[in-house]
Design a protein around this nucleic acid. Structure first.
Lengths: 146, 146
DNA sequence: TATTGTTATACTCTATAACTATA
DNA sequence: TATAGTTATAGAGTATAACAATA
């Protein structure tokens, strides 16, 4: 099966990158970018986190996350508070506006993709849902090793 | 089914972007980036193309493709030749080295992903393969409209 | 005038290296 | 000395606007 794996690996990589490019392009006029939305999403799922934890969750380096957090703070979507006992650390949490973005606006704004998904057959949607789980699993498995 | 679609759209978008980030990171020490590989791939599949055609295939704006082509030409992976009848146009084609990248090196280099796919159940690989087709279909459908 | 491609410029996302403050 | 976070800097990838050459 190695030959098929080779082909699947290549096709999956190219399709993913092409699709991600498309999605980013579609959000140009959106309030938050996908990178920002992804960080907000982590805070919504896991509650307040330190920048270091956020960077680990999102699998970026700490300086990259510092920038994302700064941009979100500028937009008023997250707050930074000092850690109660460790003066080095910072607690990042969603603001009310940030929560609104997560709960309401974000989903509604993915309009293009939603429309496309609507046109698919139910089995195709199910396939994509499974694929999402598999992809997330591949990345999660990575975490354990590293 | 709209509620599920909302959720699927969001999750698919985040998973795609996260996975693409991961893939790009993995190729840091590679000869060509995924963006470059994607363009090489288009030339391998479709034969020589003009920059405009390549930009359309890859769904980027012409100036973006100009840069990609320039970087590939610097690496000696593509050649630029004048169009035989239209002096405005340029024909971009794979060099021998470019073909080697496509046929051999590229697939072998996706080692991380290949290993991961190898660990999956056959049904999961099949799911991913279907998902690739669906995603490419979504983008292709876009083309007809635009 | 319209089209093709490029140049100029800028913004986002990401990284590594160096620094600051705290433990 | 080690850790958490930030700042400084750089590079890739994308875009829009303006330009040149050709049709």
């Amino acid at each position: 099966m190695t030959e098929n794996d080779d082909r699947l690996a290549g096709e999956l990589a190219l399709a993913t990158v092409r699709f991600a490019r498309h999605l980013r392009g579609r959000r140009r006029d959106s309030l938050v970018s996908l990178t920002q939305l992804s960080a907000l999403n982590a805070l919504a799922n896991d509650g307040p986190l330190t920048p270091g934890q956020l960077a680990a969750r999102e699998r970026v380096q700490p300086p990259s996350m510092t920038r994302v957090i700064a941009s979100l703070a500028d937009l008023g979507l997250v707050r930074r508070a000092p850690h109660p006992t460790d003066g080095r650390q910072v607690i990042v949490s969603l603001s009310e506006q940030g929560e609104q973005v997560i709960t309401g606006e974000a989903a509604a704004r993915e309009a293009w993709l939603r429309g496309k998904l609507d046109d698919l057959a139910p089995e195709q949607r199910a396939t994509l849902a499974e694929a999402v789980d598999i992809l997330n699993g591949l990345i999660a498995a990575e975490e354990k090793q590293a």
